[in-house]
Write a protein that binds this DNA or RNA. Structure first.
Lengths: 252, 252
DNA sequence: CAACCAAGAATTTTCGAAAGAATGGCACTC
DNA sequence: GAGTGCCATTCTTTCGAAAATTCTTGGTTG
């Protein structure tokens, strides 16, 4: 399955695609700052709880205050950054309560969105899910072959495929708000998920994530009422694994 | 309108109220810009769909670009403002699809939050609801006496009491995310609600909003499963009234 | 007459400096 | 010796101008 066919654009000028694109080249420095800051927070490069000094960020990213502030403001409303009135910003801390709240909220939002998608989803919806599942599976295979590999590119690809799969499930829910909230909660939980992705957590019941995905997908395609339940179960297991990992090595 | 005199900004001395307060004195100009812009958008002073030129805003509010951009960025993630990469900002348009999505999303969030509050709510929770209901009722009475009054102060007070009542219902849900989302959706729907608050909409079935509130409150205090249903019904009726009003006088 | 291009105008975005507040340390009082 | 007020330092916040980009207009061509 190929991504939507890239309509042959005038290759001459890449700058005519002016819209604030999500993944492509950031059109403004503010957008770039937002993307880089977000990535660094999610990856843990900027440690949870630590203050974000503007001067330090200015040097780190080679930007001026304005775009940085803009980005931080945005990240604040996405719960990745905290700020106090005249005391600046800091990386939002990680905690057990937060992962629980984020998980349960995500379940509420995505289960509803899944039910709605199942109600109205057409062939394209189904095809999108199957395609995403397949691509995710291939990436898992690839990484399983060179097992032990922690190639960051592979991890990033895995995350992206994973995101696309879960997005495909709810893509046809018809509510821009639910989709936005799901996207946002995905990012938030990614912060917690990433660390546990790299190192396998000991002491947790062995888990076949692919099987869980398959179960969700099958139920969804069958339009079975079980689909939402499986999805919730999937997220709760992930949360449990993360909590176990956090108990094992509480971050400094 | 005179240029803003360079009044020395007052330092908020009470260090216990250090956080970026919601209602009180805005600690920074950015916060002030956010509050004023938001109020003007919700009130319709800044018309839906119209572009927000920075130079115009600069003059209108007597501020510089930085705090304005900051505020606009924030409003963008709250769906009150749209922005395109190098083409600036505009007030988010009003539409039937939006009011529907906002209403249904609000029902999803608040019903869940209400159920959770009912599960764990204690005497304080109950007292908060009763108090808010009472205060709301008094305000309604007062305005009914001087009927026909469109005193903006009264309308503002009514809105605030109304907000507090609905907030009290879900206050003990235990999820910061649900509360935030509810707050945000309240603001979004307020944009639609306010116009229909001033002029009574003709052609809609007569409505006793106070009775609806009472019904919700009673069911909630009884911990009845009906509470969420009543709440949903309440919101759907409001949405229907708004849609009727929009059909009657589609905004220019 | 429609499409196209270029120059000018309007607007957004970015910068670096200056002003405003918080933090921490130090002397001073009680 | 503890509390208190003041000062220097550090940091955030704000400004206004400069740079970058889009939009508009008028003229030109096919």
């Amino acid at each position: 399955m190929a991504l939507p066919p890239k309509t042959a654009r005038k290759a001459v000028d890449a700058k005519d695609m002016a819209g604030g694109d999500a993944a492509g080249e950031p059109a403004t420095l503010g957008e770039a700052a937002y993307q880089r800051l977000r990535a660094d927070i999610v990856a843990g490069v900027l440690e949870a709880g630590k203050p974000l000094r503007l001067e330090a960020l200015r040097q780190r990213y080679g930007l001026s205050f304005s775009p940085l502030r803009e980005a931080l403001m945005r990240l604040q409303s996405e719960r990745l950054v905290l700020s106090t009135a005249l005391r600046g910003f800091s990386v939002a801390p990680l905690s057990r309560e937060e992962i629980r709240d984020a998980t349960e909220t995500r379940i509420l939002i995505e289960c509803e969105a899944l039910r709605r998608s199942m109600r109205v989803g057409d062939d394209d919806w189904e095809a999108g899910i199957v395609a995403a599942f397949h691509a995710l599976g291939r990436q898992v295979e690839r990484m399983a072959r060179n097992s032990g590999t922690a190639d960051p590119a592979d991890v990033a690809a895995l995350e992206e495929r994973h995101r696309q799969f879960h997005h495909a499930l709810i893509a046809h829910c018809g509510s821009p708000r639910l989709l936005d909230m799901a996207d946002q909660l995905y990012i938030e939980t990614q912060r917690y998920r990433l660390p546990s992705l790299v190192g396998q957590v000991a002491g947790t019941p062995p888990r076949d994530v692919t099987a869980e995905h398959q179960q969700i997908m099958d139920a969804a395609l069958r339009r079975s009422d079980d689909a939402a339940g499986h999805l919730a179960e999937h997220y709760r297991r992930t949360a449990a694994a993360i909590e176990a990992a956090m108990a094992g090595s509480p971050p400094a």
